[in-house]
């Protein structure tokens, strides 16, 4: 792997939301690419499942249980973290909600996890000088952000569009240290984020047919993009939104 610009060897990477879905896949694939991975998530059991799936060929990893809705948990997490070469913010939820139900409580709930937590974790890490020079920060946005939306998706889309904006401003603020900030905007990925069942399986199967590539994405396919943005191969990319959507937004 010498001189492989896509390698993550020697890099310490924090992955939030690592107990499931895209976060779990990102942690596992990053460990295979040589990174020392620090995973955090709410669900202790599922976080341990991710931890035991990490590739240990390149050394030890770390798991820290935390609920990022809780600022106390964030401070504790930041205290325990070593200096980082990269962060992938994957913690997030989906809650289909028509706009007439978008009360302050609902706004606070979904923004609290999808947006506020990502900002506060980043802010505290930067303030405590735990993000190294030339590091890479990746936010898990969505095609439902500045690109498209869906029925009942106004709040979710707003949180993800907010991340797109955040990344642009942060990219400028942190450019002097060579720290890059980018968003990944996936289309629908096969994870359990929709398992709450508000959208039926029939509706999901029908929706999958709208993708020119004929299916939903896999978590690994998003993880590979995260690896690219974390690696030195992307060292001149900052403030961008990388679409991974099987062609969905072409139509």
């Amino acid at each position: 792997m010498k001189n492989n610009p896509f390698s993550l060897e020697g890099k310490t990477i924090l992955v939030t939301g690592a107990s499931s879905g895209i976060g779990r896949a990102t942690a596992i694939e990053s460990s295979k690419m040589g990174a020392k991975v620090i995973i955090t998530g709410r669900d202790e059991t599922r976080l341990s499942e991710t931890y035991s799936s990490l590739n240990t060929k390149h050394g030890d990893h770390l798991k820290i249980n935390a609920d990022l809705r809780n600022t106390g948990d964030i401070s504790e997490l930041v205290d325990k973290l070593p200096a980082l070469n990269g962060i992938v913010h994957c913690a997030g939820i989906v809650k289909p909600l028509p706009i007439k139900f978008a009360t302050k409580e609902q706004i606070d709930y979904i923004f609290g996890i999808n947006f506020n937590a990502s900002v506060i974790v980043s802010q505290q890490l930067i303030k405590n000088k735990k993000i190294l020079k030339n590091a890479s920060i990746v936010f898990m946005s969505s095609i439902s952000s500045s690109f498209v939306s869906y029925g009942g998706g106004a709040l979710y889309t707003a949180t993800k569009a907010a991340l797109n904006g955040l990344a642009k401003g942060m990219a400028i603020d942190l450019a002097a240290q060579g720290i890059r900030v980018n968003c990944i905007c996936p289309g629908m990925i096969e994870t359990n984020i929709m398992n709450e069942g508000i959208i039926t399986n029939d509706q999901l199967n029908e929706d999958a047919k709208k993708y020119p590539l004929g299916r939903y994405g896999k978590p690994e396919e998003v993880a590979y993009a995260a690896i690219y943005l974390l690696s030195d191969a992307s060292q001149w990319i900052t403030g961008s939104n990388l679409l991974i959507d099987g062609g969905f937004t072409l139509l």
Binding site: P96, L97, P98, K100, F101, G151, E196, G197, I198, N201
Partner: peptide, 23 residues
Amino acid sequence: SSIIALSIIAMVDEEYGVSIKGD
């Protein structure tokens, strides 16, 4: 419509504190 279906689910959550599914 599908939006009204989502509204019914949200109404049940808001008024009764009960989660129902699309199914």
